[in-house]
Design a protein around this nucleic acid. Structure first.
Length: 384
DNA sequence: CTGACCGGGATCTGCCATTCTG
DNA sequence: CAGAATGGCAGATCCCGGTCAG
């Protein structure tokens, strides 16, 4: 937990921040020497500590949304020493537009407290994973917090080393830092906890290669490391309980597509499961059918109750049977809109699902269109 | 060539609560 | 104590195409 006080001290001392003091604004406080005065007049403790006017102006000039910044990290706006100019120059040098920079500072004001040395070091570390500055800029634009929330570069370095040591290759790391950049701001301890947790799960379930297991789960679900072990555990427990899975069945599921739903909010997962069970029961399915469905296609739990029901109803109305859905649940992967359109088109040409199956619903748009063209032309020349 | 099977790619932040630190 | 750092949460799919057996 105690993450290297030494590193932090070091970083602190080498920050060369530009100091802008609102020299003449402070005295208000200092002047209040008379104890009685201070006591009575300051009762509504509005300006405990006033904002740094010079800083405010500087930010304003940069186009920073002060209302937003104030709402997010009011303390930053009161600081005497900040580095907004250095930050702006630095980011510009990396190819960020002024608008992007303003947006970054608006959304994560603390970014202006980082020194250029610190920024350069952090950037270098990110460049271990990314090939270009542009990639990093686009992520900062998306999620400034991921880059700036932690000032601990040592920790970041250790994270990269740790994640690499798990056997994640550079492609995995790249995807991870792209899609779940927060992972790299977690303390290594936190990330280790999750990995150990996964390894324990594997061992508990009688798996023989916990490390491989953890790696597989993480590679399959890059969001795992920004979730709490509590959540992941709840999801695993729920899956096991609701599906009545044996240890080995569960192990297989988690290493397979089951991994992809582990990061869902556990309440959401539970709700979706209950809805699915109910829906399928109403449609005449046995629990065993549902279990098989889920083992074969866990991603179905990703779909919210309303969407799922709508899709299923839509398919049924279009002439698809429950049995066909059970056999080819991947058709639920597509949007209701997409499904509806295809069903309509298929109906128009008299496509027979009972004869041809429903695989046609699970194909890319390009392939579907090509197929439809063929069907229509055959309709035009019946002798073919 | 065709279709079934399968895996992969995109996407996922912004806020609040708690704990640490000077 | 203020501010910094860190942990945790809610939100909620869709689509494409390589490959291989037939």
């Amino acid at each position: 937990m105690a993450a290297l006080p030494g590193v932090r001290v070091f970083l602190k001392t080498c920050q060369s921040l530009s100091c802008q003091r609102p020299f003449r604004f402070v005295p208000v406080q200092l002047a209040s020497t008379g104890p009685s005065r201070t006591f009575s007049s300051e009762s509504p403790k509005q300006p405990v500590n006033p904002e740094n006017e010079t800083l405010i102006q500087s930010l304003s000039l940069m186009g920073v949304d002060l209302t937003m910044a104030r709402r997010r990290q009011p303390g930053v706006l009161r600081k005497d020493c900040t580095n907004e100019k250095g930050l702006a120059r630095f980011l510009q040098g990396k190819g960020a537009s002024l608008k992007t920079i303003a947006s970054i500072v608006s959304r994560y004001p603390r970014s202006i407290t980082r020194s250029v040395e610190h920024l350069e070091q952090r950037w270098r570390l990110w460049r271990n994973v990314f090939q270009t500055d542009a990639e990093i800029v686009s992520i900062l634009d998306r999620s400034p917090e991921s880059f700036f929330r932690s000032s601990d570069n040592g920790n970041l370095e250790k994270n990269i080393a740790f994640l690499t040591s798990l056997g994640l290759n550079s492609k995995d790391l790249h995807r991870m830092l792209t899609t779940a950049p927060r992972t790299f701001s977690n303390s290594v301890e936190l990330n280790k906890q999750m990995v150990e947790f996964l390894e324990d799960i594997c061992a508990e379930l009688g798996g023989d290669d916990p490390e491989q297991f953890a790696k597989t789960v993480i590679a399959r679900n890059l969001y795992i490391l920004i979730r709490s072990t509590r959540r992941v555990r709840a999801n695993i427990d729920n899956l096991r309980a609701s599906l009545h899975l044996s240890d080995s069945e569960l192990l297989v599921l988690l290493q397979g597509h089951g991994a992809e739903i582990l990061d869902l909010s556990s309440e959401y997962l539970k709700k979706n499961f209950q809805n699915l069970l109910q829906k399928m029961t109403v449609l005449g399915c046995q629990e065993a059918d549902v279990k098989k469905l889920l083992i074969g296609y866990p991603m179905i739990l990703y779909i919210g109750p309303e969407t799922l029901n709508r899709k299923i109803d839509c398919l049924l109305k279009g002439g698809v049977t429950v049995t066909q859905i059970l056999k080819k649940p991947k058709v639920l992967d597509y949007s209701t809109q997409n499904i509806t359109e295809r069903l309509t088109e298929l109906q128009r040409v008299g496509y027979d699902f009972s004869k041809n199956g429903i695989n046609i619903l699970d194909s890319s748009r390009k392939r579907f269109v090509a197929k439809m063209e063929k069907l229509s032309s055959e309709e035009g020349n019946p002798e073919l």
